[in-house]
Design a protein around this nucleic acid. Sequence first.
DNA 1: AAACCTTTGTTCACTAATTAACAAATTGCG
DNA 2: CGCAATTTGTTAATTAGTGAACAAAGGTTT
Lengths: 181, 181
Amino acid sequence: MSKVDRRIGKTQEAIKNAVIDLMSEKNFDEITIRDISDRANVSRGTIYLHYLDKYDLLDKLVESHINELREICIMGADLDYFSGSPLWTEYFERNYSFFSFMLASKGAPFFRTRFLDFLIEQFKQEVDVAEGKNQGLKDELIVRFVASAFVGVVEWWFTNNKPIPHHVLAEHLGLLFERNL
Amino acid sequence: MSKVDRRIGKTQEAIKNAVIDLMSEKNFDEITIRDISDRANVSRGTIYLHYLDKYDLLDKLVESHINELREICIMGADLDYFSGSPLWTEYFERNYSFFSFMLASKGAPFFRTRFLDFLIEQFKQEVDVAEGKNQGLKDELIVRFVASAFVGVVEWWFTNNKPIPHHVLAEHLGLLFERNL
DNA sequence: AAACCTTTGTTCACTAATTAACAAATTGCG
DNA sequence: CGCAATTTGTTAATTAGTGAACAAAGGTTT
C-alpha cells in the first residue's frame, strides 16, 4: 500500500482539533467554516477539499471517535469487564468536550443512535445465550438492554459534569457488565 | 507587501518546537536532522529548504528569541524598571527549557555573547551620563557593567533551576536597574 | 424593504512541502 | 580495521495547500 502524504493527516487533524476547540466555546450551529479555517490555520478552500460541508465534517468527526472506540474494544478484547472498563472511561475523560457536546447538542439524537448501534455491534460479540446466566434468553434483547443502559449512564456522566471520577465509573460499569453479559 | 504563505510559518514553528522539545531530552550535538524531521513531522528535504544545516537552525532559534526579547523591550519602554522587569522574567519562565539549555551547553559562550551584545544595545538607550547618578561616567562602561551583571544573574537563575520565583527575580532586577541606570 | 456586510462554495494558477532516490559521509559494532 | 547501518545533503517529479477572486446566499442594520 502506498504511503499517504503526511500533509493530509496534519490538515485533517488541525481541522478536527479546531472544531473540538470551537465546540467548547459555542454551539456547533454557531460555528462557521471561516471560524474553523481561522482556528485551524488552514484556508477555506482546503477545508472544502477534505469535506463537503460543515455537517460532513461533523459526521467524519463522529466516525473517527467511533473508530477510536472500536480500537479500544479490540485492545480490551482479552480483558475481563473490570479490567476493560477503564479503557472506555479514560477515553471518555480525554475526549470530554467532544462527548459532552455531542450528547447535549441538537445533534445528540443522531450521535446517540450512531453510538448505540456501535455498542450493539460490540456487545453482540460478548453475549452468550447458549449457556450461563443468559441461557435461553434472546441475545438481541440482552444486547439492546445493556447498550441502552450504557448510553444512559454515559450520557448522565457527561451531562452532569462528571459527578463521579472516571475510575469509579469504570468500576461500576465493570460490575454491571459482568452481571448482564 | 504581499502576504506570506501560512505554510512557511507553520513549518518553521514546527521545526523550532521540535528542536526545543528534543533539547529537553538530549544534548543538541546528539540531535540529528532525522530526529527533528520525525518530531516536527516534516520531511528532511523541507528542513534543508529552510535552513542550511543544524547549526544554522540553532542560530535562527537564538535570533528569534533575541527578537522576542527586543519586542519585550519595546513593550516595556514606557515603564519604569520595577514594572518592566516582570516582562523579562515572565518571558524567561515561559522559555525556561531553551534558555536553560543555551546557557549550560557547549553553545553557551556563543549564546552568552549574542545575548550580552543585545543587552548592551538595549541598555545604551537607557543610560544617561549627562546628568544624574551617572553624570561624568563613561556610558560604555556603565552599560557593560549592568549587562554583564544581568547575564550573570540570569545565568545563575537558569543553571540553579530557578532558586527564586521569577517575580522575586523581577523585583531584585528592578531595584538593581534603578540603582545603576 | 433596501442596503450593506458576512459567509459559503468554487475555481485556478501558483507555491511549499512531499516522497523517493542517490552518492557521500559519519557512526557504531564485531 | 572492515563492514554494516545510519545520517546527511541534494534533487526532481508530484501532490497538497495556498491566496485571491467571484457569484450566490444568508444575516444584519437602517
